[in-house]
Design a protein around this nucleic acid. Structure first.
Lengths: 225, 225
DNA sequence: ACCTGAACACCGTTCAAGT
DNA sequence: ACCTGAACACCGTTCAAGT
């Protein structure tokens, strides 16, 4: 009764997902194999298949956990409500950097569907007309994914830039790519001050644009009706 | 001399990349294994390693090919120039749908660097001040990747939605997710008429926003200086 | 110089056998 | 009901041996 095995907490879908999240956050999603996942809990690979159908299901479940961390849009005017939840989504994705790519390759679970529904509801319950909400939904979701994807993959680029520096090609590159050099220098300058502002700057570009487009459309309707 | 082997075109890095592109475009990047790649050319796996260092190098090379298809920004005013190249990037990525995800996971090659440099140059050589160009660069790149990522991954969602319909859950879901239902219906409505407009609508939101932000900044400088 | 057989250390998944 | 040994069909990569 005091054997190693008796100390194991019994497996369950939830426990498997929690263990998978730990590995993904620590080593990245590429390092997550069914074998390692099982081993991390003291089981053999095949035991997992009593609780999950496939690795795909595990990944779907992982993204659902991340989506669950996003604070949904609060009630009230659409603009600050959207702003808040889109910023919250950004933070959730930065806590689980692998999740941005996984978002794109996994299928939409109920929680993701609910999040997307909430985005649309916020826009439609506000003053945004249907065609603007249609575009706006894409713009906002694109911002969340595209912007964060860039941030996350910049880490890799950063390394490859370091490599280039190490290969002492940097001087040459500064001449061939003056604007990229400037841009990277700007990045380093703002690094610990206002990098988050960047996300919000572009977000406001979009939200302000949607508001303006909605106003224009309504004005058109009034003058033509 | 008329054996099967004598008919084989000799291997080269370029030929390997071309063959890899065919497989990726046909079956997706997940289906691209070194073994299948070699087999598709009538060679054994190990032969590839005489010409490429690793699979990673193959993927890097593939993305470079796609980037090479993007028409660079033409000379002239920054706004139409950016607009043209960003639309061209969209088209190139839609021709190679796997490339959106690969863009994020591969490291930046010389052609990608040159493309990004051209984006920045277009903005800086125009009237955009440095801080606006800094944000604008992120906004534009984000649009290319984020928007296209959504389009490409919507295909998957589409299938899963079809599944849901097949499982006869659709009626229930239409009640629980009225806005998503409306949104999908809108998608189907515009499908063959103006889906491309959507990409350009959001792009113009960003470009107009940048222009306005630049004007504001200059006005501030004049009134305060 | 270029190709390859054999081998290594991995994968996800199935299935019958154990308890 | 839950776990697992053995097996299958795959991976990317190395290395010594062939031509």
């Amino acid at each position: 009764m005091s054997s190693a095995k008796s100390k194991r907490t019994p497996l369950s879908t939830e426990r498997i997902l929690r263990a998978a999240l730990v590995i993904a956050d620590r080593d990245g999603v590429d390092a997550l194999s069914m074998r390692k996942l099982a081993a991390s809990m003291g089981y053999e690979v095949m035991s997992l298949y009593n609780h999950v159908a496939s690795k795909e299901e595990v990944l779907d479940g992982l993204v659902e956990i991340v989506v669950d961390e996003i604070v949904p849009p609060p009630p009230g005017p659409w603009k600050p409500a959207l702003r808040a939840t889109v910023i919250s989504a950004h933070q959730a994705l930065l806590r689980h950097r692998w999740a941005v790519a996984a978002w794109a390759t996994t299928s939409t679970g109920p929680k993701r569907l609910a999040f997307q529904e909430a985005l649309l509801r916020t826009m439609r319950d506000g003053t945004l007309p249907a065609p603007i909400a249609y575009h706006g939904y894409h713009a906002v979701l694109m911002h969340i994914l595209g912007f964060t994807l860039q941030e996350v993959s910049f880490d890799l680029d950063d390394e490859s830039l370091r490599e280039m520096a190490a290969a002492s090609l940097q001087r040459l590159d500064a001449d061939a790519f003056p604007h990229m050099t400037e841009h990277i220098r700007q990045h380093l300058d703002v690094e610990h001050s206002s990098l988050g502002d960047d996300y919000e700057f572009v977000l406001d570009l979009i939200l302000d644009g949607l508001e303006r487009a909605a106003r224009q459309l309504k004005h058109q309707e009034i003058t033509s009706g």
